[in-house]
Design a protein around this nucleic acid. Structure first.
Lengths: 76, 76
DNA sequence: TTGTGACTCCAAGTCCGTG
DNA sequence: CCACGGACTTGGAGTCACA
């Protein structure tokens, strides 16, 4: 049915990927520190997952950024 | 039995309620404009709901604010 | 090191109602 | 107008094997 990934989630994924690269972590490393599964994080970076705030927060902690930085450019 | 609600979600709920009051909408009106259920929005304002980004986005549009304003003070 | 499909389980989210 | 509950459907959370 609905195959279109929403651009907001794609943008969020790009943000995560960029910030992760900046900190020099692999998906697996970041996932570990965030307490998430490696494949889950990967899906998020690809814009395939509609994350909840609590998941977002898990991710931004090891990245040392605030929610608003993680969400920069999302939904405008 | 005490459902410990996470402080981040409580804070988010307070933000929504405040911003909604500022715009002068009832929960039902905002829910309608956001395309969400009124009971769900109510639960969100009470900090009982872990919203997804896409829902957050739906809420901030009729409120005329950005995500970062909606999420001010959440998770820091 | 990352992408992907398939899977289970429970929460996201809807719709009916009540005081 | 809002808090809250029951019953329900959809989709997010979380994991795995394999590419």
């Amino acid at each position: 049915m609905e195959k279109t990934k929403s651009p907001e989630l794609v943008r969020l994924g790009e943000n995560i990927r960029e910030l992760r690269a900046k900190v020099g972590l692999s998906q697996e490393d970041l996932a570990l520190q965030a307490g998430l599964d490696r494949t889950y994080l990967g899906g998020a970076e690809r814009g395939e997952r509609n994350l909840t705030i609590l998941s977002l927060l898990k991710i931004c902690r090891p990245l040392n950024v605030s929610l608003s930085i993680l969400l920069e450019g999302v939904g405008e």
